[in-house]
Design a binder for these strands. Structure first.
Lengths: 317, 317
DNA sequence: TGCAGCTATGTTACCGCTAACAAAGATAGG
DNA sequence: CCTATCTTTGTTAGCGGTAACATAGCTGCA
């Protein structure tokens, strides 16, 4: 018991005893067994974070926001990757919950019924992030991708572009990309327009794919005056292609992407984009969990919608 | 006990009982407590993975290799981030070990004495990854960054470049970058040469920094005929700058980076680079752990050195 | 019908720690 | 010197599962 007290800095222990304990622990390389500790105290200083992928730079940035906040608390993030697959996500959520974490942060609002039920029953704070367009389990921090798509479309129309092509990934399970696309199209149709052409890809290096797709769509539809990309990475590939192929950007043709990737600062031109507030989303989500830990009854604001803003960069008129 | 048997698919249970248990579990949304299970069975199906950063695309790729292998086992990766700080790494390792994982995968060979001791005493397989230039605790999978630097230098000299500049990050704690740099310089000095100029950065978008640094170094040292970058990302920034500034690459000036980032496929030219075998390193490391789990006594090969090869791309003669 | 030899279920004792309470030691005031 | 009070250390039970062993139910055959 005294050892436990010393190692957790809890309760009164005399300085001499404390020193003796610490010395012994150090000498024998003692590492306490958190499993036993967690079981006994019924507290686990872990926060589960479930994201679809680590490979596209947007989720690592969310992680940074989360880490920064949790560093000031006893909590630690634990990452699970769902690969955009609902069943895999359910599995990961189950696995996470079976470790009885202090909170859960999950990307997206679309889950299997079982996953949703598990999270509801878990009794811990659950924060869904990135997206706000849909029903929320417990709390939510994100942006409206619907609106992001709509606003981008408005900006484009405002600037006089009319023959608009869309380039995106073939990912029916990326609901956020889908919502942006829908929002985008709805503004076009309200203006009596429709997409002039579309081009899709899946897999491979996004930059190279953006290049290829742009060449393909521009070869096919020579009268396009704008290309809307579902993400900045393929947009950057498109920008490189247009630059090399001698297009006047944004004169002949305008380009826009989505995400506001800092990674791409340094491209020949700054791609028009809309920031997805990734770090901020991570911060806010982590704060909600930390807050719930501090004062369990307080129901903090459960729905935080951030407003991304359109950054015209140098690829629109 | 019967419930435990059903939920873990272990031991004989009649079909009727099994169904009843599963039905009840489903109805009540039962999620077993892994903490209790782990304590009782003294097994934890977690593999700790400790990496310096999530933000530069190289570690996520290692994670992919690890995940792919562990997906075929009961094991699950848990990520910890050390931020290139030895003390933080020690903390993360301590935290990890206190959960009694089945194995540990740690990036790099440089650790605090305490961290090294903890890992030695842990009694679990520990695989150090990415680097092989140094003393190993238990097992190791990686490449020699010394040699990578040396071989890049040889390729450059072989192609007739002589006035060589180096551009890198100001990260004294990135030992792998340091080793490449040392290997690189040693070949130059064996050839009676030395670096003509150097330029360093820290923080910010690597692409933009690569651009700035390249402009700075080329403005200062107009007779350089080669630029060696400590990573592909700043190399790509440099390539963009050189292209726009009208340099003939690789005629006037050659460029090379390091990592073999697939991310950059699609750049105006393919940057000369050396693949750091990231996915393969992750795969092999995970296999070592999975192997140790399967047959505990077998001492598999404890030191796996992979051989990166120089990919000249389009930026060297 | 009785019993060997199964299969299916139940019992018990922990796993390593911590909450809650108990006791011992130290200090001080009368 | 003794008791009241505070500080420090110790005891006990139990967290929710699982290993190991024990028992109960069932089957088939003499």
């Amino acid at each position: 018991m005294t050892v436990s007290r010393v190692l957790r800095n809890r309760g009164e222990v005399s300085d001499t005893t404390r020193e003796k304990v610490l010395k012994a622990a150090r000498e024998m390389g003692y590492v306490p067994n958190k499993i036993a500790g967690a079981l006994a105290s019924n507290t686990v200083n872990l926060v589960g974070v479930i994201i679809p992928s680590l490979s596209n730079m947007v989720f690592p940035e969310v992680m940074m926001g989360i880490s920064k906040v949790l560093d000031d608390t006893p909590l630690q993030p634990v990452v699970g990757v769902s690969g955009y697959l609902p069943e895999k996500e359910e599995e990961v959520i189950f696995e996470m919950l079976s470790w009885r974490p202090t909170g859960l942060i999950v990307a997206g609002l679309e889950h299997t019924d079982a996953a949703r039920k598990m999270m509801q029953n878990s009794g811990i704070p659950v924060v869904e992030i990135m997206d706000v367009d849909g029903p929320v389990i417990d709390a939510c921090v994100g942006i409206s991708h619907q609106r992001a798509g709509r606003e981008t479309a408005k900006e484009i129309l405002k600037r006089g572009y009319r023959k608009i092509g869309f380039l995106g990934s073939k990912m029916p399970l990326d609901h956020r990309a889908r919502k942006r696309f829908e929002g985008f199209k709805s503004v076009l149709s309200e203006a009596g327009l429709s997409l002039a052409d579309e081009e899709y890809y899946s897999g491979g290096s996004a930059l190279a794919k953006g290049r290829e797709m742009t060449e393909a769509i521009l070869t096919r539809s020579k009268d396009l005056d704008f290309l809307y990309y579902s993400n900045d990475m393929i947009g950057a590939g498109g920008l490189l292609y247009c630059t090399e192929a001698g297009y006047d950007v944004p004169g002949d043709i305008g380009l826009a992407g989505f995400n506001g990737l800092e990674l791409l600062d340094g491209m020949p031109k700054q791609l028009a984009t809309m920031d997805s507030c990734r770090v901020e989303i991570g911060r806010k989500a982590a704060e909600l969990i930390a807050e719930a830990l501090r004062k369990p009854e307080t129901a903090a604001e459960r729905l935080v919608e951030l407003s991304p803003i359109f950054a015209p960069g140098g690829t629109v008129r």
